[in-house]
């Protein structure tokens, strides 16, 4: 392990960066992990493209994939930030469900789309804040804390909706769900905006860098004077708000607020995407771009399995296996490359 410095010195002395081939430089810019994800994605596309050449590449289907991953994408990129900070948020599915209900109720009572959306996201952010407070002030393990609130928030969603689905009759929300601006579905545009914000946050700001520091080694971060708890509380609130936004997208898509929405493994898919994307569950490692690639892989896989008529139950098995496989591969890589 301590042989590394000599190795590195030798490398830098040997080849100047300019002399490397274009492909190598491209891989380096992207990161080797993201590059392997791209290859995996290409393979998946090739497989499903070959199995259903009649449907898979139709614009309609591509758009379907895009619509489907918009919600997962928002959840997964926020989850990436949570995992990088050394935490985990498994309550996002419940917050999402809660958000759809809140938005549906708020549209009904206020009649204002903007107010309803803001209300849904604000309530979700507060739920995230509750997670953050339980984890930091209560010193509860993040998995346990959010496992508890996952059940509790779901319960609240049922209580305030009386267990009923609430229909939304609102043209503006319908436009968000079905409409297009410049030929691109609005949901995908929302996803791209979220990704752009998160990408800049994690890559180009002091806040982002501090999140990596806190997740990488909380003791080092504390001894460097970073307010760890404040960051953690903020991150869970952000995760909640993102789940609220995802709930808004879902409510817009389905035209209803449903207390059950997001209960079908939304958190599982979000965590899987983040881990596939290179997040270490020990924290400090992972990128928004990687998370997005993880989302694309899951999106294509889901879509492909539907197109090739894989029964739903088998799809669930496949997703569970995928999460575990992603962790196993990440663990293996960490051990090999330190």
């Amino acid at each position: 392990m301590t042989d590394a410095p000599a190795d590195a010195v030798a490398k830098s002395a040997g080849t100047a960066p300019q002399s490397r081939p274009v492909l190598v430089r491209a891989i380096q810019a992207l990161g080797t992990h993201n590059f392997s994800l791209l290859i995996a994605l290409a393979i998946l596309i090739a497989i499903f493209g070959a199995l259903r050449p009649d449907v898979f590449f139709l614009p309609r289907n591509i758009s379907n994939i895009g619509q489907a991953i918009a919600i997962l994408g928002v959840l997964a990129t926020a989850q990436t930030i949570v995992i990088v900070s050394g935490g985990l948020d498994i309550s996002v599915g419940s917050i999402l469900g809660m958000s759809t209900v809140c938005i549906a109720l708020a549209v009904e009572t206020t009649g204002s789309t903007t107010l309803a959306i803001l209300f849904g996201i604000a309530v979700s952010a507060v739920m995230g804040l509750v997670n953050g407070l339980i984890i930091t002030l209560g010193r509860v393990n993040a998995v346990i804390a959010t496992l508890g609130t996952m059940a509790a928030f779901r319960g609240v969603a049922f209580i305030i909706s009386n267990g009923q689905s609430i229909s939304i009759f609102d043209p503006a929300l319908r436009f968000i769900g079905d409409g297009k601006i410049l030929g691109i579905p609005v949901t995908i545009e929302v996803l791209m905006l979220v990704i752009a914000v998160f990408f800049v946050l994690m890559r180009y700001t002091v806040t982002g860098r501090n999140i990596y520091a806190i997740g990488g080694n909380p003791l080092v971060a504390r001894l460097a004077g970073l307010p760890i708890r404040t960051y953690q509380i903020g991150i869970y609130a952000l995760s909640g708000a993102a789940a609220g936004l995802a709930g808004m997208l879902l409510a817009a898509r389905t035209g209803s607020g449903q207390p059950l929405s997001g209960s079908q493994g939304a958190e599982l898919e979000a965590i899987t995407a983040a881990v596939l994307g290179g997040c270490a569950l020990t924290g400090g490692k992972g990128t928004i771009l990687g998370g997005l690639l993880g989302v694309l892989i899951i999106g294509v896989l889901n879509n492909g399995m539907i197109l090739t008529s894989v029964p739903t139950f088998y799809q669930m098995v496949a997703k569970g296996v995928l999460l575990i496989a992603a962790v196993v591969i990440a663990e293996h890589q960490a051990r090999r490359f330190g």
Binding site: A213, N217, V220
Partner: peptide, 20 residues
């Protein structure tokens, strides 16, 4: 290694950690 350095980060990030 356990108290001062962010081992997953670069030389630059480690040096500038306290001077945002």
């Amino acid at each position: 290694k356990s108290q001062a350095l962010l081992l997953l980060r670069s030389v630059k990030d480690n040096i500038t950690l306290c001077v945002p």
